[in-house]
């Protein structure tokens, strides 16, 4: 017999069930529309293969770039006291709350070929064009993925007891050695979670990519853009590719289960 305190009211249970149904229905709908007999053929189609190749390459590069930029940023936010820290944290969070299309427009303002603050200089001095190129895809994906990595790493760094780095210093470890041999191993769970979340976000990026890098098959068309394009011309292919992206997302969730999902269980 449940005590009064632990008893869940019926309307709460019904509400929760409705919530589950709301989330599950689209997944079921998607699975129902997948043409299983032609799934492999659809996934190995040239356009799909190109989109997957670009998606995989760009999302891995974006995650690596997010790591290079995000780790120092997270370190400073977690460990340093400086004026403007709140503003920088708000700036880090901005791509999370910004409509991705607006993010793409902002990227055009910064790295656009003719009018971009930096893009114009890069183009006139070195002939480098970031828009409508694979680099454009990588930059757009890095822009939206970076906050996920910074938040995970910042949380991880805050939870690490600095006594281990102090002990290492007394034992003769220099700054870099302390970072590589002590801080990074302690940070590993947060780092893995952050990298997976950032990679998943990069892989699913749509709005900023289409605005900043375009939707050119074989050059900048990623898997989500291919799904959008194929939905009219080849719905079977769109559903096949969507299924693959759902499978990847589920794999990420399974990979993170202990840290993000299992953590909620008692």
């Amino acid at each position: 017999m449940e005590s009064v305190g632990s008893r869940t009211p019926r309307f709460v249970r019904i509400g929760a069930l409705l919530g589950v149904a709301f989330l599950a229905l689209p997944v079921v709908g998607l699975l129902k529309r997948v043409a299983w007999s032609t799934l492999w053929a659809q996934l190995t189609d040239v356009a799909t293969r190109d989109a997957l190749r670009i998606s995989l390459y760009a999302s891995v590069c974006a995650t690596a770039l997010a790591f290079l930029l995000g780790l120092p940023l997270a370190w400073c936010l977690a460990r340093m006291q400086f004026s403007g820290r709140r503003i920088i944290r708000a700036l880090v969070l901005l791509p999370m709350v910004l409509p991705p299309v607006v993010g793409g427009v902002a990227l055009l303002g910064a790295y656009g070929k003719s009018n971009g603050l930096l893009g114009g200089v890069l183009n006139s001095l070195f002939g480098i064009q970031l828009t409508y190129s694979l680099w454009g895809v990588i930059i757009a994906e890095t822009f939206v993925a970076l906050p996920f990595l910074v938040l995970a790493l910042e949380g991880g760094l805050r939870s690490i007891d600095t006594k281990y780095e102090e002990a290492a210093a007394v034992m003769g470890a220099t700054d870099i050695t302390r970072f590589v041999r002590v801080a990074l191993p302690l940070l590993k769970p947060s780092l893995v979670a952050g990298l997976m979340l950032a990679w998943a976000r990069a892989l699913g990026e749509f709005g900023a990519t289409i605005t900043f890098a375009g939707n050119i098959q074989g050059r900048t068309q990623t898997a989500p853009l291919a799904v959008y394009t194929m939905l009219e011309s080849n719905p079977e292919g769109a559903y096949a590719l969507s299924f693959l992206l759902v499978a990847v997302s589920v794999a990420v969730l399974v990979g993170l289960r202990d840290r993000w999902i299992g953590g909620a269980t008692t």
Binding site: K163, Y164, E166, A167, V182, P185, L186, K188
Partner: peptide, 8 residues
């Protein structure tokens, strides 16, 4: 005082 052995 708390030994501070590296846990990893």
């Amino acid at each position: 005082q708390d030994h501070s052995l590296f846990p990893f």
